[in-house]
Amino acid sequence: MNWSKMDDVNSQYYFTASMDSGKTLCSLLKAIQFQETAVFCALPEGLKLTVEEGKCVQASAYVPSDNFTEYHVRDDVDVMFKISIAVLSECLNIFGSGEESSLKMYYRSEGSPLLLVLQPQSVNNVMTDCEISTQNADSVLELRDEDSAEVAKLVLKAPAFLGLLADLERSCDVIELHLSPEHPNVSIVTYGMQDRSCIDVPKSSDMVQSFTCENPVTLKYQLPHIRLIMKALAISSKVVLRCSSNGLLLLQLKLEKEDQRQMFSEFYIVPLLDD
C-alpha cells in the first residue's frame, strides 16, 4: 500500500493501528480478563481497555501510542465500544504463544466490527483476519474522586509483592492494610476461620522502592478483589499503590518490554466500609 492510499484509509476509518508483535498486548489483556466484556477506548495518546467487577473493581490495560508502529484515531469522534475481551485475546493468540505475529487493527465507524489482521513473522504464506463484533459502550465508572487527598504511596517490586499475595491464605475474605510512618510501616493482616495472620513489611525491605505516608491509616478490602491483580503482577516489574483518604486503592503496574517501550495496567479497588 502506498502512502497516499494509507492516508485515505486513515481518514475513512475511525481508528487504525499496527504493531510488530501482538504478544505483549495479548498477555496484558489476559491479565485483566476477569470479565467477559471490556470497554475498548482508543484515545489519541493510546489504547485503553477497561473491565469492571461489579461496582467494586475496575481494571484497565493501557497501551501508549508509541508502542504502535502506526496509530491513528480520528479526532472528531469518540472511539469507544464494548467488545468480548476473551475473543479478542484468543484472536491475538491465534498462531500460538510461541509465535510473534504482526498486528493491524481497523475500526471503520460506530457499530462496525473491529477488524484484526495478523501475520506471523516466521512464515509468510499464512494470515488471519478477524471480525469481532462491537456493542455500544455503557459509561465507565468514575471512581477517582478529585477531592480526596492521597494519604499514602508505595512503590514495590512486582514479583516480590506477587509472592507476598500468593502466601496469603486463600480462604480469607478480608485483607487489612495498616500503613504508618512508624516501624513496621506496612502491615498486612488477614483473618481466617480461626486465625489471624500478619505480614510486616518495613520500608527498609528490599521489595519497597519508595514509601510515603504522613499519618497512620488502616484500610480494609475484600481479598478476592486484591487477588485479581495477581496475573498482572506476574508480568509487571513495578507496582505503585496509592491510597486516597476515602479508602480507594489505586494500583498502577508497569510492564517492561524488550524494546524499552512501556505498557501499563491499572486497578481501582473500592474499600470495605465498617458497619
Partner: peptide
Amino acid sequence: MAKVSTRF
C-alpha cells in the same frame, strides 16, 4: 461474537 479466518 466473531468471524475468524486463517488463510494459507
